[in-house]
Amino acid sequence: MIVAKQKPIEEIIEGVRDYEKILIAGCNECVTVCEAGGKKEVGILASALRMYFMNQGKNMKIDEVTLERQCDHEYLEELRKIIDRYDVVISLACGAGVQFMAEKYFRTRVLPGVDTCFMGVTEERGVWSERCQGCGKCILGETAGICPISRCAKRILNGPCGGSTKGKCEIDKELDCAWQLIIDRLNELGRLDDYEKIIPIKDWSTERAGGPRRVVREDLRL
């Protein structure tokens, strides 16, 4: 999933303080799972803002909505009938959802209510961690199912670097060294000889370096 975290309430307040009619829009997908921007968080943020502005003596209309997804036209369209009632929308979706909303409702100010962090997993309740940077050409088959691009601080393809100590990364004692994990798993799979295969210089053109990316499936287009 895409993992996000809530922005500090002060930052959100600063963004909306000059408006009177606010819509807080949650998303029922990734940000719900990582508990940053689902229905529950929409409710909590709405209450916090109502309380804050009430204490300021300011009368604000703050409404709540949570869409199935904000990255699909179909669900974003649900707002078409009501969007003009608001001065500003705080979207608690990931950066993709916020932008898609802004593209669709061109005349309405849309503010992000979360900081989008990475593609990752729920390691345990309340702990999410990164697993993928969407480089566009997956090499997990060569690295024992552990991604050195997203999990090594230097995204070294032929690691580990000299900073690996007792299985941890030099930049953070809490962080596993991705190459230690790769080597452990190769060992477990009886494939340690694979470690000696050099991963060639990577073609980064399918990654961010190649510019904004698209996937087009002609067979699916209408």
Binding site: N158, P160, G162, S164, T165, K166, G167, C177, Q180, I183, D184, N187, L192, Y195, E196, I198
Partner: peptide, 16 residues
């Protein structure tokens, strides 16, 4: 450096 079991393999890789 850690992990010790690949120290020589890593040397071999750099030579290769």
């Amino acid at each position: 450096a850690d992990p010790f079991e690949i120290r020589v393999r890593r040397l071999a890789k750099k030579i290769a």
